[in-house]
Computed example of a mutant assay.
Amino acid sequence: MIWNVNVGQNIFEQYTEFSEVNWLRVWAATKETVFMSFASVVAVFFLGLVIGLLLFETQEQKSLFSKIINRLVAFFVNVFRSIPFIILIVLLLPFTKEIVGRITGPVAGIPALIIAAAPFFGRLVETGFREIDRGVLEAAESMGASKLEIIFKVLLPESLPSIVAGITTTAISLVGYTAMAGVIGAGGLGNLAYLEGFQRSQPTVTLVATVFILIIVFIIQITGDILVKNVDKRS
């Protein structure tokens, strides 16, 4: 019993030595994580909408061109959704070097984040479109609405709650991806937790980085929930 108390006290002391935390570095790492997450979410949102639209619009088309587009996009989505992110970011290092000019830092982590998350969000967008009542789409078509009018006046408005919920889920996943990207030099709270927390045996730094990541996730989730309630016409 005494041994257990001593062990517990040692663990407690490890996590209460906040003097080893460089708060300026924590703040800088937090800004890097927010930057990577925000920039990626914006790009993933628009790219995912395009992917979802392509999958939805070509799924029941009989033309050869539509079938080819559907198969190609579906193949792209399935492949990049299946690759673990930590492996994907390593595979994309030459591509990142080519378009960004470097393989370290927050900017260098963004291409892999986008490629990893866009297929996932694209599937969520497609699912949102599938949930729309077919009668609504047929009514719009019978009234002579063009394809663009159907997309912007029917598909997107009717599926908006699902899209907002989907981008919220994707944004939370991206925050987790930034932590993994940080391990191989992308910066952010993941890099801080690994280099200064784990490698230098400073568990308090890891704890602080984890708490800040949780705060970011909670803010995203709360914001997403509020937006879903505001755009959901059924509520």
Rank of each mutant, 00 (worst) to 15 (best):
I132Y: 11
R123P: 04
R134I: 14
A117Y: 06
P111T: 07
T127E: 13
I103R: 05
E131C: 10
G101S: 07
L137R: 12
L124Y: 01
I114F: 01
G122D: 04
A116H: 07
A108C: 04
F120R: 10
D133R: 07
E141L: 10
R130I: 12
G144W: 06
E141A: 11
P106M: 03
V125A: 05
A118S: 14
R123V: 10
I115A: 04
I114Y: 02
V107R: 06
A118M: 07
L137H: 11
I115P: 02
R102F: 10
I103D: 02
A112L: 03
G122P: 03
A140L: 06
I132E: 08
V136L: 15
I110V: 15
I99G: 01
I132H: 10
T104D: 00
A145P: 00
F120V: 13
A139D: 02
G128L: 15
S142Q: 08
A108D: 01
G109H: 02
E138H: 10
L137N: 07
A108I: 04
D133Y: 04
L137G: 08
P106V: 07
E138M: 12
T127N: 14
P119T: 11
I110E: 06
A139F: 05
I132N: 09
F121N: 02
I99A: 01
L137C: 10
A117G: 12
G122R: 04
G105D: 00
G128Y: 11
A139K: 03
L113C: 10
A145L: 13
G135A: 10
L113T: 00
E126H: 13
P119Y: 05
V136F: 09
A116Q: 03
D133A: 06
R123L: 11
E131N: 15
P106A: 07
P111A: 10
S142C: 11
R134N: 14
A108V: 07
A108F: 01
P106H: 01
A112T: 06
A108E: 03
T127C: 13
D133E: 11
L124F: 06
D133S: 09
A145N: 06
S142D: 13
V107E: 08
E141C: 07
S142T: 10
A117W: 08
R130M: 12
F129K: 09
V100I: 14
E126N: 14
P119E: 08
A140E: 03
I110G: 04
G105C: 01
T104A: 02
E126K: 12
